[in-house]
């Protein structure tokens, strides 16, 4: 995952309350809620920040061991990709 980039599906609408993201996917109107770490990754998923950098920031913010953070982040990103909320790219997205 370290050389990849994650970007939020533009068909999502979201808000953050008390550090937890509430995400609505337009395509099927599903509602997802993320915990604090998930919300941090979600916010960072701008398509221009490498996953490795996001994981490093998660380690700092939440005092997690790098190996565990990398493993948990990869699982989390996979899960959100399966749900159609995130997309993984091999190269950075152009900033809008």
């Amino acid at each position: 995952m370290s050389d990849r980039y994650v970007v939020r599906n533009p068909e999502t609408a979201w808000r953050v309350y008390d550090g937890q993201a509430v995400i609505l996917l337009a395509g099927d109107s599903t509602l997802n809620t993320l915990n604090a770490v998930g919300t941090y990754i979600w916010r960072e998923a701008d398509g221009t920040t490498p996953v490795s950098a996001i994981v490093a920031r998660v380690c700092e913010e939440f005092e997690v061991e790098p190996a565990q953070a990398e493993r948990d982040s990869a699982d989390f990103i996979d899960k959100l990709c399966q749900r159609g909320l995130l997309m993984v790219t091999e190269s950075p997205q152009e900033r809008r």
Partner: peptide, 15 residues
């Protein structure tokens, strides 16, 4: 109650 699947409209509902 909302049936449209357009992202822009969904974002307005959430707002």
């Amino acid at each position: 109650l909302f049936f449209a699947r357009e992202p822009e409209l969904t974002a307005r509902v959430l707002g």
